[in-house]
Design a protein around this nucleic acid. Structure first.
Lengths: 166, 166
DNA sequence: TTCGGCCAGTTCAGTGAATGAACTGCCGAT
DNA sequence: ATCGGCAGTTCATTCACTGAACTGGCCGAA
C-alpha cells in the first residue's frame, strides 16, 4: 500500500479514509496510541513492527494530522480521536466472529461505570461516550496465557482509561 | 500484508479483524458488495484492481466466510453483513475530514425515509437500522464531475437500497 | 572531560507481494 | 464452426516489507 496510493475512487470517503489509515500496521499504531503508548520504542516493542516501517507510519500520521509530536512523544490529535468509532467497530466485529469466549475487552463509561455498547452508548446514563471518557478492562474472552509478560503489556492489560499515559 | 500475516497481538480483536479485512483493497471489495456488485468483472472494473489480486482477495473472503459464491456470484454472508458498521464508521471519518462540501453519500432508513446518523440510528423512528434496510443516495459533498461515466458507476450513484443487485 | 547506556531513527540486502498487460479456457448465442 | 464476453491465470517488473545491524544525540556518572 504505497503512501499516495490513490484508490481511484475519489467519490467514496471510504477510499479516502483508507488512504490514510488503510496501510498495514497503521490502525494498530493508532490503537496503541489510544491505549496510552506515546514513545517510538514502546510502539516498536509492543507491535513487533520493523522500526523502519514504524518511522514511515508515524511520519505519515503526523503529516496527516492524526498524531502530533509534543516533547518527542506521539499524541492523538482531535482528528485522530475521531477514529475511535472505527476501531470500536472493528474490535466488535473481531470479538463477534473470532473470540468464542466473549469479548476480549470490556468498555465502560469512566464517570458512572456503565457498560458501553458497540456504539459506545452507556447503559447507565444513555449518553454516547467519547474516547477520553472510556475505561477499558480485560473482558471474558481475554486470555492471560496469551499475553506477553513485558511490563508494558502488563500495564495495558490492567483496567485504565483510554489515552492515559503509561 | 501477507495472508496469514499474523499480527502477533492475539489478544486484541482489532488485530484479528485486520488479518481478515486489513489487506489493501479488501474493504473496498466489501463496500462494493454492499453496493450491489456481485460479479468478478464488475468488481475489477469498478475498483481498477489487478485481476490477480482480486482473485486472491475474493478467494480469501469466501474462505473466511465473509462472502459466499452462489451461481457464480459473490454475495455477502451474515458475517459479511456485520461489517457494515465498520464501513460506516470509516466513511463517516472520511467525510468529516476529507470532504469539505459535506458527506458524499447520505443514508436513509428505507422504510420511513428517516436520515441515519453515523451509527445508523434513524432520526424518524429511533431504531438502529441494519444494512438491508439502508437506502443510500448521493449527498451534498458528492462530486458528479468526479464520477466515472460507465454504466455501472451511474447505477451506483443513483439512490438505491444496499445489497440490491445491479 | 570522557565513558557508557539508552533511545530514536537510518541503512541495507533479501524476500515477497502488488502491478499491468497479455493470455487461456469456458460457455452460450449466431 | 465461430464469435464474443466473462472468469481467472501467467509472467516479468516494480515496489514495499522484513529483520538485523548500524549511527548519532542525549543524558548521567566517573
Amino acid at each position: 500500500m504505497a503512501l499516495p496510493s490513490t484508490y481511484a475512487d475519489r467519490n467514496c470517503s471510504l477510499a479516502r479514509a483508507l488512504e490514510i489509515v488503510g496501510e498495514r500496521w497503521t490502525l494498530l499504531i493508532v490503537r496503541d496510541a489510544f491505549f496510552g503508548i506515546r514513545r517510538f520504542g514502546d510502539f516498536a516493542s509492543q507491535l513487533g513492527i520493523p522500526r523502519a516501517v514504524l518511522t514511515n507510519r508515524l511520519k505519515f500520521l503526523v503529516q496527516e494530522n492524526v498524531l502530533e509530536r509534543v516533547d518527542g512523544e506521539y499524541l492523538l490529535t482531535a482528528k485522530g480521536l475521531r477514529l475511535w468509532p472505527v476501531l470500536r467497530a472493528m474490535m466488535a466485529w473481531g470479538d463477534e466472529h473470532y473470540s468464542p469466549g466473549g469479548a476480549r475487552r470490556t468498555f465502560r463509561h469512566d464517570a458512572d461505570g456503565g457498560l458501553l455498547d458497540t456504539g459506545d452508548r452507556c447503559s447507565t446514563c444513555g449518553e454516547v461516550v467519547s474516547a477520553p471518557d472510556v475505561r477499558i478492562e480485560p473482558g471474558p474472552g481475554f486470555d492471560p496465557g496469551n499475553a506477553t509478560p513485558d511490563p508494558v503489556s502488563a500495564l495495558l492489560n490492567t483496567p485504565r482509561r483510554l489515552l492515559e499515559p503509561l
